[in-house]
């Protein structure tokens, strides 16, 4: 069943359009930076954008920081929100269930497919960011060291493993979005409702993060630690936010998937 879901995901044109669009924004930013030469001052604008003029390789990380707040979660919410509700809307859900595909099994397969999409998106953003950065921006040798966010020097080896950890962290953060959209996808028969519902939660969370009065709530908001992957490029690595981010996402993922499973396993499929 998992293989079937992957085939469905990868044979959909929309999957590839989403991945393409996801890479478009960082590419535009890179081209603009290259043409104008105006980089934001350090500490302003998306993370790392100040450094990429000198070292284009770093644009891989900058690209991740550009798509993370909005584009990536939108893409994930669309794909995960579609997963069960899309089948219900198309009427194919009933035919899958009477094949028979167990409901839990179907949900797991959908979750795996959504996770693969997340990983695929994050990896392409990093790879395309790297290539575009090398081509359009500073083409310093790959071996060149980088100045960490803390001001010390990081070797390319250090950058490499930190980037791998960053990819894992961002992917895991996006799984929280996927779990939310998947849960809503079992509640409604409309994929748009599920996707927009998940987006509403994220926008609400982002908004509350900017409101001082909401400070007591902030450590529990799903988007709170998303950009903490920047801490991986401090020297030494500042792990506290990363750890809290992973813990918080894990709770969201477990609770939302549990709710999705509980709902779907006993649901009347009338679509």
């Amino acid at each position: 069943m998992i293989r079937v879901e992957l085939v469905k995901l990868l044979r959909r044109r929309r999957t590839w359009i989403a991945v393409g669009l996801l890479n478009l924004l960082p590419t535009i930013v890179a081209v603009l930076l290259a043409v104008t030469g105006i980089a934001p001052r350090p500490g302003q604008g998306p993370a790392f954008l100040a450094a990429v003029q000198a070292n284009g390789s770093l644009f891989a990380i900058a690209a991740l920081a550009i798509v993370l707040p909005l584009f990536l979660p939108v893409a994930v919410a669309v794909v995960a929100g579609e997963s069960v509700a899309g089948e219900a809307q198309a009427g194919t859900l009933r035919y899958l269930l009477i094949r028979p595909v167990g409901r839990t099994r179907l949900l797991v397969a959908k979750l795996v497919a959504a996770s693969v999409f997340v990983l695929l998106s994050v990896l392409t953003v990093v790879v395309v960011g790297f290539v575009v950065g090398r081509l359009a921006l500073g083409n310093a040798p790959i071996s060149q060291a980088m100045i960490s966010v803390s001001g010390t020097v990081l070797t390319p080896g250090q950058i490499a493993w930190r980037t791998v950890v960053a990819i894992a962290f961002v992917t895991f953060s996006m799984l929280g979005v996927a779990a939310m959209a998947l849960f809503l996808s079992t509640v409604t028969d409309s994929p748009q409702t599920a996707s927009l519902g998940a987006m509403a939660l994220l926008i609400g969370s982002s908004l509350l993060l900017t409101v001082d009065a909401a400070r007591p709530l902030q450590p529990y908001l799903p988007t709170r630690y998303w950009l903490s992957f920047v801490d991986l490029y401090r020297d030494p690595v500042l792990l506290s936010s990363i750890e809290r981010g992973v813990g918080l996402q894990a709770i969201y993922v477990v609770v939302l998937l549990g709710a999705g499973w509980a709902n779907f396993a006993t649901k009347d499929v009338t679509s």
Partner: peptide
């Protein structure tokens, strides 16, 4: 739907 287990 009941027969096929779609509706409980």
């Amino acid at each position: 739907r009941l027969l096929l287990g779609l509706v409980l």
